[in-house]
């Protein structure tokens, strides 16, 4: 039982870290959005994601039983201890990059949380149900941007093609799984990533078709997030996110 608890803690950590890192990335757009409505949209999405991260990290800390809070987990761990997928840590780039990353992750989140609602772990199921409502809006918003960019002007189409070229290679890491998933899947706690992937791919194909874009075939996938092997970008993101609580331990404001 306690073994299962530790595995579930690790699983909750992955979900929380993924939301946290993307929330932090989107926060970088605050005050820099191309138009006011988009600035507000990105910070709204960021807020949803950080809210989700808080709940999943709090739960991970409880399961772990070492007294670590959401803040300890967010601010006192190093890069190698983070379990987010590689997609969410990729830099914002231009708006096409930001929106494509958002679309890939929101579509993943939508189908992932849809499955996690059925988890036998009632806390994970409740948090998934809550998050699902939020990511439904994220998915709709980002889908519209993919279509607008892809089926827009030659310039916007080119920007989207460049974004696909840069980001598609990280999509595989969102569905990465290992023994932890297998054990938890047997216990009815984790979701089956092959189901999530099949649904995700259908959605991506349908939106890309409307956007006159093509889904890359046989693309080499870079993975490592669940093992803590990250791209160079995560460390820089964390250094900015963690500097205050690390420079002034125990600070409150």
């Amino acid at each position: 039982m306690s073994a299962l608890k530790n595995l579930t803690a690790e699983y909750a950590l992955r979900i929380g870290d993924t939301s946290l890192v993307l929330g932090q990335r989107l926060g970088e757009w605050c005050g820099h959005g191309p138009i006011l409505e988009e600035d507000i949209a990105l910070t709204n999405i960021s807020l949803d994601l950080i809210g989700q991260a808080r709940a999943f990290l709090t739960y991970a800390g409880e399961l772990e039983g070492r007294g670590r809070t959401e803040d300890d987990l967010a601010f006192q761990r190093d890069e190698r201890d983070f379990r987010n997928n590689l997609m969410v840590e990729q830099p914002n780039g231009d708006y096409a990059h930001t929106m494509l990353r958002q679309f890939f992750v929101s579509a993943f989140h939508y189908y992932f949380f849809s499955e996690l609602c059925k988890s036998k772990d009632t806390t994970l199921a409740a948090l998934a149900e809550k998050s699902l409502k939020e990511v439904t809006y994220h998915l709709r918003h980002s889908s519209e941007w993919i279509i607008r960019f892809g089926d827009g002007t030659p310039e916007s189409n080119l920007r989207m093609l460049e974004a696909i070229d840069t980001l598609y290679r990280f999509t595989g890491d969102m569905f990465a799984s290992n023994d932890i998933d297998n054990e938890l899947l047997k216990a009815g706690i984790a979701v089956d990533m092959t189901v999530v992937y099949a649904n995700w791919m259908k959605k991506v194909e349908s939106v890309f078709a409307q956007a006159t874009l093509t889904v890359p075939k046989d693309c080499f996938m870079i993975t490592g997030g669940i093992k803590g092997i990250h791209s160079e970008h995560l460390g820089h993101l964390l250094s900015e996110m963690q500097v205050l609580p690390r420079s002034f331990p125990g600070v409150e404001w």
């Binding site: 507000i40 949209a41 709204n44 999405i45 807020l47 809006y137 918003h141």
Partner: peptide, 13 residues
């Protein structure tokens, strides 16, 4: 609708 996201997370514009 002008924007899915409004002045707070629970509202649209």
């Amino acid at each position: 609708m002008i924007s899915h996201f409004g002045s707070t997370a629970c509202k649209a514009l």
